[in-house]
């Protein structure tokens, strides 16, 4: 029983960056933009969040953990937005190829993260960039009086760091937004058929920019989760290492539904930490390829059975130019 609960908790913790990446990309793709730069935006968010908290700590001698957390969230979000903004400007305004632009963003973002990570480390007196214990503790699990103490339930639901709850809240809000609001309906129309949305008076450009940028910001927070929670506030070279790509695949697994993204990231989080909890007697390097192998299987399974309602927004990958004929 304890193993199962531990596995579940570890899966939630490992799955949360995937959840952020997946949610960000779902929002992006709902606008018809296929942004393959998730990995890059996560790197950008990872370094921005860490650097934000780090400099805050340097400037104020008595840092407050809460303020540092807010700074990390805001900075990583904004840096993700910055990446997505470059992408939107190139694809929406300048109409460049979405695939290549997304890959360029990944190359850029990966370089950006590692570059500034190294700069930060190189300038730290100790030779590596790390935040202090005060700040580190805000990114550890929370403790809610009474709730966290309930046997099993407390550990299962009330023991995580605050970002886990932020991720779940974003998923719920996104589900509500897409299905129950006017703006959500408009966004879906933009992704399905931008010409029809345009003719109905929707500002296609605005929706594409907003959805892509907010999506990028959410991916950025996911990156910050990697640097602040998984790497405990220390810059680790190449820390995101493929999480962004799995998130892109999870969007397909989740069939563009935020609620199913919760399940998907939990499963994939579980796969990535399995070697610690489920001994199968195989080398750890083989365990490490499980998430990727599972992604391939998911791709194949979802690709073979396709439905009209739960499929990719129809215009995804194509740029819209009103005057094209």
């Amino acid at each position: 029983m304890d193993t199962v609960i531990n596995l579940f908790c570890a899966a939630v913790l490992a799955g949360t960056p995937l959840l952020f990446g997946t949610l960000g990309e779902i929002l992006t793709e709902k606008s018809g933009n296929l942004n393959l730069g998730v990995e890059g935006m996560m790197f950008m968010g990872a370094i921005a969040g860490l650097a934000g908290a780090y400099f805050y700590e340097q400037i104020f001698t008595v840092p407050s953990g809460i303020v540092a957390a807010i700074i990390a969230v805001v900075f990583s979000f904004l840096c993700g937005v910055l990446g997505a903004l470059i992408y939107s400007f190139l694809t929406v305004t300048l109409r460049s190829n979405q695939n290549v632009t997304g890959l360029a963003l990944t190359i850029f973002g990966t370089g950006f993260g590692n570059f500034f990570g190294d700069v930060l480390a190189g300038r730290a007196p100790s030779g590596y960039a790390a935040v202090g214990a005060e700040i580190k503790s805000v990114f550890q699990g929370i403790k809610i009086p009474f709730l966290s103490d309930i046997p099993y339930i407390g550990k299962l639901f009330f023991s995580y760091n605050f970002l886990v709850y932020v991720g779940v809240i974003i998923a719920v809000l996104m589900h509500f937004f897409l299905n129950k609001t006017r703006a959500g309906l408009n966004l879906r129309a933009v992704g399905e058929d931008p010409a029809a949305a345009d003719a109905a008076g929707i500002n296609v450009t605005k929706y594409k920019y907003l959805a892509t940028c907010i999506g990028g910001g959410i991916c950025g927070i996911g990156g910050m989760y990697v640097s602040m929670v998984i790497c405990s506030g220390v810059w680790v070279f190449n820390c995101v290492g493929g999480i962004g790509w799995i998130a892109v695949a999870l969007v397909i697994f989740a069939t563009w539904s935020p609620s199913r993204a919760l399940l998907g990231s939990l499963i994939f989080g579980g796969l990535s930490i399995m070697r610690l909890y489920v001994p199968l007697g195989i080398p750890i390097q083989i365990y490490d390829i499980f998430p990727y192998l599972a992604t391939v299987i998911v791709l194949i399974a979802t690709g073979i059975r396709q439905s009209k309602e739960h499929s990719i927004p129809k215009s995804t990958g194509l740029n819209y130019f009103r005057e094209d004929r």
Partner: peptide, 10 residues
């Protein structure tokens, strides 16, 4: 328009 501007899945 000649080609209707309607979103299919809605």
């Amino acid at each position: 328009h000649q080609h209707f501007k309607l979103v299919d899945v809605l």
